[in-house]
Design a protein around this nucleic acid. Structure first.
Lengths: 196, 196, 196, 196
DNA sequence: ACATAAGCGAGACGGTACGTCTCGTCTTCTG
DNA sequence: CAGAAGACGAGACGTACCGTCTCGCTTATGT
């Protein structure tokens, strides 16, 4: 996660220019999409954003952090963690946007990011902490609640079930397997017993 | 892809020393397994292999090509396609070796290979056809047979179910999630209804 | 010639550290004096100066430029132009210091400087005008006066005689011929008839 | 001096191809004249001469030896060591060709060679041994004979006098001082007392 | 109102790896 | 054996980034 000040604005001195944040993230995203992680250079991003390097390092501690945030924003990975009391609805609300994106224009960006993560431990670390972790936790939470409500049998393997949707989605994306409109529906049908 | 000679041996001059190929690939593989892609440096590989840098660049045009080939050679895959008439047994026989390798020393190797495949369409294509495709086909075949035998309900989503084990295994591997000894058992428990 | 800034200090950004200039030139000079031109390596100079390679290449475009400047700075010349009325004394006073330096630690430095001048016409030009020219003129002046005083015969070839001492000194230096303590004395004995 | 077989031709096997000698020396000379010593690379010379590298190293032990011989041949530095019994004549016969060459088209080649010698200790060493040494020895020999014959006074400083002509010639060449047609004559007039 | 503290563009700095080049040696095959 | 071709170990070259550190300047705020 970036070194974002969450609010403070109690700090003395000149405040950070929000236009810089935008310009930097935009530039980073463009370069990443064009050249991949290795093609991103801080000097290059700074130049393209019309910004000094210090202005970047004041916000992000490393190239990895910058790229993570850029991709997260750029692909508008949404961080909503829904909890409506209906497992199907919640899972759909969390997973369908990912599927849509992986079937659309962002596909290349997202898979490229997934790939680069493996090549750059820093990147992986950063992303796991800032994004994946929370989602995983929430998925398990939703599954546990569903068991309590009786939507899933009591002996359900929570940790495992919670991984099935993202695992299948990414698996299909990475291997180029087709994901039809009813893809998520089929997954949920497999995981959630039909209501009697 | 590497600058491999087509084996002609009609070229004049001193032939390439095959011992160098081996030493370089071995060294690259070791460093890669220990430090990951970013940790591989040509100077380091050259030193460890007891070889000049030029000897590496004579064979591969860049670090990326070298690593791809090293991993491809190092990660030899086994391709048994069992069919004993028992789904649990067959899936175990197909999937457990993969899990074992992904939990063992080859883990980084295999995951990085999975990653590099994404960057080299040719490699991906070839690998899909020669290995993955057959396995996928066989898995579906096994699932279909299990339905016929009544081990799985008749309305089972064959294509989807068949992807779940590899998807979950790779998902855990790629995200560094723990895979305990009973990992495959839990997957099978989830997929296959308990025998009454 | 080096990429010297004209001292403007109107440039934006962090100014160059003068201590680096000094350290690099010093290190280059030392290596050069010890190992000769071919023995100078940028990595070596950088290491000895405690400086990154980029810091050198930011200032000089190549090894050659660096060495030229280092030597030029290191080989400061003295330019006394004596005129006591005694040819032997004046010539000794002008030439002995040169011999001493060429026999001492500065030998390699000075000869290499003489060499580099040949490769850098600009340097040669400037040096000829500012140092050599005046010395040559003064030598001829001294010889002419000596003729008037009768220390030398009236038909002496002024221009030629005036070149003999420096020519012989540099010739011996460049070819590594020995220059004993009485070297200058022998030259003068050859040129100036013994007083009756 | 090169590893020339001076004669042998008693060796078994295929004799060396004299055309190779010529092609290599020619190529080396061209590159040297165009690019200077540092610009000469064995690979480059081999390619330009249409010859394998081994064929060069079979004849010369190093780049320095090759370049020395190439320049010596190319500038047709003649190795005649005349001894007619007349000092003026012998000195003229030895020195005038050098002056002519330094005033003519070979000037650049020769001075460049003189310069590069200083930069490359190997080169200097090679050249001193193979060319300069013998000439210097012979000059001293001639001077000694002239003293015996009474052409020079008995107290003449042999070693010093012998160096004056080459020292003055090279001094003038390197500093761009004019050398008129009577340049050598003036030197000899200075050194050799007029015949009574 | 104006000092203070931080932001900003620019770019220097010590490092490290890159990919290229040359050296002088070694190894194959063909005449 | 000579010769053409070219692989080999070694190591310097000059470039490009990284992440940090000054510079001189600008911009809010808080007293």
């Amino acid at each position: 996660m970036a070194i974002r000040e969450e609010d403070v604005r109690a700090r003395p001195g000149r405040p950070r220019d929000p236009a810089c944040d935008a310009a930097i993230l935009q530039a980073a995203l463009e370069v990443f999409a064009e050249e991949g992680y290795a093609g991103v250079s801080i000097d290059g991003v700074a130049a393209r954003a019309g910004v000094g390097k210090a202005t970047i390092y004041r916000r992000w501690a490393s190239k990895a952090e910058l790229v993570v945030e850029a991709v997260r924003c750029g692909a508008s990975v949404d961080d909503r963690l829904p909890d409506t009391g209906d497992l199907r609805a919640d899972l759909t609300s969390m997973m369908q946007p990912l599927i849509d994106r992986l079937r659309g224009d962002d596909a290349k960006l997202l898979t490229m990011f997934a790939v680069e993560r493996q090549r750059e431990p820093e990147l992986q670390e950063q992303f796991n902490q800032s994004v994946i972790g929370k989602k995983r936790e929430h998925l398990r939470h939703l599954v546990a609640l569903a068991i309590e409500r009786g939507e899933l049998p009591p002996d359900t393997d929570v940790e495992l079930i919670a991984e099935v949707p993202p695992a299948l989605i990414w698996h299909h994306a990475l291997y180029g397997l087709p994901m039809a409109d009813d893809f998520l529906e089929r997954i949920l049908n497999m995981l959630i017993p039909a209501r009697p």
